[in-house]
Write a protein that binds this DNA or RNA. Sequence first.
RNA 1: GGAGGCAUAGCUCAGUUGGUUAGAGUACUUGCUUGACAUGCAAGGGGUCACUAGUUCGAGUCUAGUUGUCUCCACCA
Length: 877
Amino acid sequence: MREELAKNYNPAEFEDRIYAKWVEKGYFKPDGDKKKKPFSIVIPPPNVTGQLHMGHALDETLQDILVRTKRMQGYSTLWVPGTDHAGIATQIKVEERLRVDEGLSRYDLGRDKFLERVWAWKDSYEERITGQLKKLGASCDWSRQRFTMDEGCSRAVREVFVNLYDKGLIYRGHRIINWCPRCLTALSDAEVEYKDMPGNFWHIKYPIKGEEGYVEVATTRPETMFGDTAVAVNPEDEATKHLVGKTLILPIVNREIPVIADDYVEIGFGTGCVKITPAHDPNDFLVGQRHGLEQIKVMNDDATMNAYAGKYEGMDRYACRKALVADLEAEGFLVKTEPHDHNVGTCYRCGTTVEPLTSDQWFVKMKPLAAPAIEAVECGNINFVPERFSKNYFNWMNNILDWCISRQLWWGHRIPAFYCDACGAMEVSKTDLTVCPKCGAPMRQEEDVLDTWFSSALWPFSTLGWPDKTDDLARYYPTDTLVTGYDIITFWVSRMIFSGLEHMGEKPFSTVFIHGLVRDAQGRKMSKSLGNGIDPLKIIEQYGADALRFALATGNAPGNDMRFSDEKIEAARNFANKLWNASRFVLMNLTEDDETLLTLPEESALTAEDKWILSAFNKLARSVNDNVENYEVGVALGEIYSFTWDTFCDWYIEMAKSRIFAKDTPEALTAKRVLVHVLTGILKLLHPYMPFITEEIYQALPHADESIMISAYPTFDKEIDFSADEEEIKRIIACITAIRARRAEMNIAPSKKAKLYVVTKYKSTFENAAPMLEKLASVSELHIVDSYDSSDAVAIATDSGNLYIPLADVIDFEKERARLTAEYEKNEGEISRLEKKLSNEGFVAKAPAAVVEGEKAKLAKYLETRAAITEALAKLK
RNA sequence: GGAGGCAUAGCUCAGUUGGUUAGAGUACUUGCUUGACAUGCAAGGGGUCACUAGUUCGAGUCUAGUUGUCUCCACCA
């Protein structure tokens, strides 16, 4: 059954309808056929913090292209959708809304009530995100949709936590961590972003006990001096080593601290003396451990000063800094203030300057996990596309430190550790423990939750049902391709790799396909603060999902950033419109029954242009398959584009018109069958990129399958390989192009037809092409002659093979002479270039024979052209 | 400080292992109510492929360096 194709391309009219149909038919679910090879992708779960942006649209488009291609290639494909709870990010959003709308903090509500709010938020945003994915055309299996905090994923998290704990790979430690005073939680190293900020170097005098002098230290953060427990110098530093062992008096505080020797201090940098604050600086922490120094924490969790700061207690760290510097100056301890730009760590979610401080947290011991993860990529078991991103990965993995996984948040997986206050026992358990196994007293669960990325790391197997041994897991793990941006290689990709290897004993995916960022038309990152973000939904409304997908996929090279602009989306929409209208043209001429139209004619009935287009399509199919296999989706799409527009529409349809319009002839039927065949093939090749329009047109054409989605992807077909016949049509195309160019130069109106005399050795080619020449080159009469010798006309030549094309009635004598002379000179240039090349012994001896032959053939062609032009010029006299 | 990307037409970008006269979109010029499409058709103009040196018969493509630009990682008190 065929559907009508609307007169105008209006994607809003059919996209939703088609998507609903696909879902209803269950096409997105994997084919249960066990003979088919599996192909699986898990979606990088979008955060439930908000809606999808262009980056997501690109990510999902690329995945859908791969999945749809594989599905049509006969794989049993599974694309698992889902969302991420995004711990800090989501909690911040909900807290913010609570504050603005109701003036409440999460503490006002309490943990349970607050979490209810977050779940409600999650529900509404998850729905919004899945709605957007559907608008985009994503062919994921919605019956398998997951969420990082759903029951199954939560079980996986507990399983992993307990297993790692039992293996000694998770431990609780008192260490220095990155603390966000705004979010009131610990952060992992990866969650800290360093930003350049202007600051100062304050040089401060630390008096030496029992002596007149002082030691000068420089600091960017004077407020931490309340926590100083030593000053360090380098033991090799001649300038300062005499100070080692002396005692200093901390100004203002009047506490005594020692001078110690540690080679962490760089000789020649600053004053050579470093104040050591083990509780507030990661390096100082290590120095402190080496020397057994006391850790004095001088701030509260919200970065206000505590009792150790004396009279500054209660002040914010920056207010304290200001007041302290003023006091130091007043009391003569401040030597100088130097402007100094430095890198300050900030919270990746809220931007607040993080405060390094010591705290009790949970950690994952990384070295044992990193080793096999490095190995897997090194030996090629997992590949990065483009390959260069593996360097990024190695750099991170080789220098990895233990991973701080506890967060002082409420939204997330609560750590499955249980404490007994009565006997002090601590148990880690997969199930909730309410009674202490040691003393029988009640137990309380750890308040902290896990880092969001702890659960994301398990995504490739938790979504397939792990820890249960499910059929999905058996069939679809490891997954095939992970599609993501380079910005989360460290956060996510690396952690999935070591998690998969550790818990599944097998890699989570074979290929990591990396794409770049989508930037705005000026090349800036799209961001909320700049307000330059483009909403994919708005684009879809205006131009259609297919145009959006096309704009994102076309010309996109793996790993490279791209710009999104009005021009791009318009070009994409224009292409869709072109395809629509070409299809409409084909459709309006189809009068025969579907069965007839669906079969390709016998080879003997095919004309030269039929063979040419079939052959060209064949090559296109091969190339598109190859390019997708190599993740060059941008190249593949570019090829489909130019074949569709330049080859099929601009040439083949135009060539076929003369036959099509000869109604009810066998020739017309042949042309229509070829048109249907090639157009259908184009639609199939294009379907993964532009799923909606291709389906809509497919349903209007005679079609064999219920949906284009489940039809077979075109491949190279030996049966329709007519490469040998292609030269013929290329000659005609060259001739038509040449005539058009001459006519344009001479300013000849299209309505003015001209007689054409051709002198050629390819007589039958031109005889057959007579109707085309009339139609496409405004030829009134075609004369194929042995020689042309009319005194009232001139000749022109093309390099398509010994060809004169006199336009007897219309040529401008003088202009033609000038043009031919220019042509001749250009041709001479090429001849001398090639002669030089071919007389180069090195080239002839070392270049591959095929290349040399190619150059020789070229030269022969140019020589022919030279003869033709010479003859033509002679006739001009 | 370490690593990497990018530099090709006015603009935005392709150019896969070195091998035709370096391509596309867009913009520009000229002509066109061509039996689907003006979101179109046809014909054009426009590039010392950042610079320098090297490898090679041959370099936009490989190597080294220079300049500009962007990003990631580390982080010095």
